[in-house]
Design a protein around this nucleic acid. Sequence first.
DNA 1: TCCTTAATGAGAACGATTATCACTTAGGAC
DNA 2: GTCCTAAGTGATAATCGTTCTCATTAAGGA
Lengths: 147, 147
Amino acid sequence: MIPSAERDMHRAYGTHRVSNARRAIAEASARIGCAFTVEDLHRSVTRILPGVGLATVYRAVAAMLGTGYIACVGTRCGKALYAVCEGGAHHHHLVCTSCGAVTPLPCSLEAQLATSARRAGYTLTSHEVTLYGTCNACSRGASPLER
Amino acid sequence: MIPSAERDMHRAYGTHRVSNARRAIAEASARIGCAFTVEDLHRSVTRILPGVGLATVYRAVAAMLGTGYIACVGTRCGKALYAVCEGGAHHHHLVCTSCGAVTPLPCSLEAQLATSARRAGYTLTSHEVTLYGTCNACSRGASPLER
DNA sequence: TCCTTAATGAGAACGATTATCACTTAGGAC
DNA sequence: GTCCTAAGTGATAATCGTTCTCATTAAGGA
């Protein structure tokens, strides 16, 4: 395992132990390149390392959510959708409703939202913003395989 | 049933039929005055009209989501949280994490978000914003019963 | 190398939500 | 007001995403 990959594992799991299963899970998350459900991730991991259990994927997802390596970006048919977060700065996600691509968007709303909340008599502690739209490739009518 | 209440029923259910159960469900949603789960709503409805089944509450919630009378404003312990929407204009919700109070906030971000999305190569179709904070009463340390 | 304990895989359990079905009733047509 | 039909209802079973349990394995510090 090359050092940069080890660094990725630390980003993904923090102080948790890193096993072969978790290595495969972090690698699969990064490879998918768009929003994924736990089921998608499990399928993808199984191709890298057969035999990894679904419960293990759920546990790894919980760990990666804890470190902020991935984030929940919505739901699809009642299943939670996750995406890998680039960098650590506060940001939101732009999700393509056609192909599932996810683009991080640095947050520039903090001051504005805090002011709106204050006017309404609230002290803002956090906010969630998710944008849905169509990415360039999908707008052009390209199928996911042509990209 | 007084006319204004009938108008509420139309707001809640649109062209759907209005039964006693649905009248009680819409009334209970309005009475709760903060974010509620389906279970909360069921408990509340049962006090107004005993015997209403949980499935009926789920069906009424689906109908009220369809008309925009209520909206999903997040989740709590894996259960969906709903709140009654005042008026019909596009708005977001400010949720008090202490008492569950929900305040609507007119949306003033549309142009800004569309621009951010366009810069990232997306055509924005929709967005979800939820703000979490502490309401005035909770900040003052008032317990929910003192209000 | 040893030892502790976190991680694992399999499958059971859980729980929110949805579907089914026989029965009831809202509300339009007359 | 009466009829009729389809939508709504309550009870309960089914579904399915997610979490828990438990015996076993293995990560990684001493």
